[in-house]
Nucleic acid binder design. Structure first.
Lengths: 198, 198, 198, 198
DNA sequence: TCCTAAGCGAGACGGTACGTCTTGTCTTCCA
DNA sequence: TGGAAGACAAGACGTACCGTCTCGCTTAGGA
């Protein structure tokens, strides 16, 4: 019973809403946006909005999934240079944030932080996990992996936030180099089992 | 012209509001709280509320500052000697979070994260800064201090969030030990100027 | 674009509000009524109220206009022949006030007086004006028409106020007869140009 | 126990409040005035205000009594020319209103109307009453005296209101002449018992 | 002359109503 | 039949006043 034309129409409506949201986020920041703003911008009826999404947040995450996919694709490209010695490809995050500066800024200074944090944490988790599988089969780590990934994702996101919001005059590569300098010694110790704190 | 009695009255009112807020955060989570809820609980008039605070967030921040002050005074005040080799007293944060588990949980799963992050960052910033003044007078760091403190505060908060929300079965001292293990090598390199990344 | 069904819905809402107001005026007097009271009674949302009316007063006026229209249609519409020799149909006002004694009392002892005065003045103005057009085409009056109508409306309202508030034991027809006795000689002189004051 | 000095202090405070009220009425109209406005203007503490008056209205009437006394004194002067043939000295009201144009305007467009109406009604009542005692001892009137006085006071006040608020370009004497022209025939008939309405 | 009580200013406070704003539901009509 | 239009109930928001209150300062009049 579902026609393709209808599907396409629905698709168009949802995209119109997502685009309107992004535009508005860039203009005034996520929390100041109202449903009315969105549907006005998207030329969509109020009831239509609620037919597709639960609320503003739902629209945001729906859009975020696609966007995070884009991140993972770009980040995945980095895997083509697996021998840069970096256990985590933090560079990709800094580059991604650099390219989407405005959107990051808008989302970070809003409530989007948690979302980005979670996505980032998952990515890092997977990256390190696959690295570790190579490096040390089933060898037990002195520090649990989720600890490490949460540590790194938190540090990374915090830095991106600071970098973007304060307009710190480093480029993505400089940021990444410093991040790696801060993070790698600890990671190496942790993985090697050298948990000597001083 | 300002009488002490009046000051004390104001103090009492503000504390009543802060206490009401904490109670309510524990009961239903920060975002669901209404200004009306707060003033009902605190037995305070609506206008009085707005005479003291801009809005709900302002009350939270104001309480947080006092509370963070309490953190730095009661917990961090040399419970361990300042020369325990820890440049940042991360232990204090884990202990504090442990003591106020419910409040932290309520705030973290709400919008309070940014706030805690900011306060934590400031504390860490001050702690490290004073340490550094001792260690190396005006010596230039290869990595800027705000970079380091944002890195550390982000990592720390992210870990506390994970620890509290997932009910990870480590105690505060274990968490701190692992955190120090992860963080110290990088910090030492950064401060010593040994920015050899690999 | 405006549908008839929607119009009817709006009509229903506005009437619910007007009815609620009248009920409440009878119960506790106009000035003690709260917008909240009205919308509770009318089962209407707060914003809906303000979508239709500027404030409590506006609702009152709006109702008053319809009500005054009702006055002019139901009562004044030739129940007596237009040629009963009365230039102003003051009888209608007394009858109307008699039928709605409670409402008049509630409104008069509140701030509604000015409103009634204004509405009454307009009615009288129109009545006399149309009479005069018949009687004397463009003939200039020695006393300006607004003077006359304000004079009459003030006197009429003041009498109704006195009659209702003091529960004066005359019926509407007696009141009207006396009013006409007081007013007509002056009016006749004024219109005939016989401005001999003594 | 009450000392004269203390009395004088109280007097001064109350007058300061009354003066402030009048100033403010002229500036922004009675209903827009707040107690805060008054006490700021009068340089008086909030509690002091409430120590002397129940509320804003109470302050107004307290002042109004003195002012009405002034009216009656000026009106009384008119009695020196009792043989102007006027049964009611409406001229005095028009003159009084003319002299205090601003205050009248401010009070009329506010809630003060009822007050003025009442005062005016009483004055007219007394005037006519004394006239009538001369004219016809105990002779019964075909129309009750309160009817006449309410009729006249209402008409008079309504005209003054119109005259002042609309800035009608007649002077007080013209207004009075027209008023007398409108009112006297009816009054004369009523008093003479000639209640023939046409 | 001192001292005690009243008048007062200052302003914090609990309370209530306001008019605005946004949400999510629902109904009507058009394409 | 799906979606645009938009009326609606619900209820939180921040503002504006109100009338009560507590507090110290000033000051006048009896000791």
């Amino acid at each position: 019973m579902e026609s393709k034309k209808t599907d396409r129409r629905i698709q168009r409506t949802q995209e119109a809403l997502r685009n309107a949201l992004v535009e508005l986020i860039l203009e005034k920041g996520y929390p100041k946006i109202t449903v009315q703003n969105i549907i006005d911008r998207a030329n969509v009826g109020r009831s239509t909005f609620y037919a597709h999404f639960l609320d503003k947040d739902d629209l945001l995450v729906s859009g975020f999934r696609a966007w995070a996919f884009d991140l993972s694709r770009n980040v995945g490209d980095g895997e083509n240079t697996p021998d840069d010695g970096h256990i985590i490809h933090s560079q990709d995050f800094f580059l991604h944030a650099d390219h989407h500066r405005d959107l990051y800024r808008a989302m970070l200074e809003s409530g989007g932080g948690n979302l980005i944090l979670k996505v980032g944490q998952e990515h890092i988790h997977h990256q390190i996990e696959s690295h570790l599988v190579e490096l040390l089969g089933g060898k037990e780590l002195p520090i649990p992996l989720p600890f490490i990934t949460n540590y790194l994702a938190g540090a990374l996101l915090s830095l991106i936030k600071w970098w973007i919001e304060e307009d710190i005059p480093f480029d993505a590569l400089q940021m990444d180099a410093m991040f790696q300098a801060m993070a790698m010694p600890g990671i190496r110790d942790a993985i090697m089992g050298n948990s000597n704190t001083r």
